[in-house]
């Protein structure tokens, strides 16, 4: 599987309702050791509708300037949610969430 196979996939809820698309893949560095580092393991998916605004990263960090851009992006990415890997099923061409209400995206420290 490639990263591009996940990014952009439609995400649906347990009842088949549209939750948006996969905007990003959260990785945590605690997988098996590869060379000098632990592997980057998938922990969950960032789900939403504004791919370009989300690319700027303002929804993933606390307080970053300038205020104007931060406020604009925050508005555009309001609906962005986090879907933990444990709560999803990969089916053909879509991601099916097992919970209807997704939580906010945990910020990166």
């Amino acid at each position: 599987m490639r990263g591009a196979d996940l990014l952009g996939l439609p995400v649906v809820g347990p009842g088949g309702e549209d939750l948006g698309r996969v905007l990003d893949v959260r990785l945590v560095q605690d997988g098996p050791i590869l060379g000098a580092f632990a592997a980057l393991r998938i922990e969950g998916l960032v789900v939403g509708r504004r791919a370009l605004a989300a690319r700027l990263g303002y929804d993933r960090y606390d307080a970053q300037g300038p205020w104007l851009v931060a406020a604009g992006v925050a508005r555009l990415t309001r609906g962005t949610r986090y879907l933990p890997w444990a709560d999803l099923q990969l089916t053909d061409g879509e991601v099916r969430s097992q919970v209807a209400d997704l939580g906010p995206v945990p910020k990166i420290a």
Binding site: L56, G57, Q64, G65, P66, V69
Partner: peptide, 8 residues
């Protein structure tokens, strides 16, 4: 550029 110049 503006965004990156703000990215710690």
């Amino acid at each position: 550029i503006l965004v990156v110049a703000n990215d710690p």
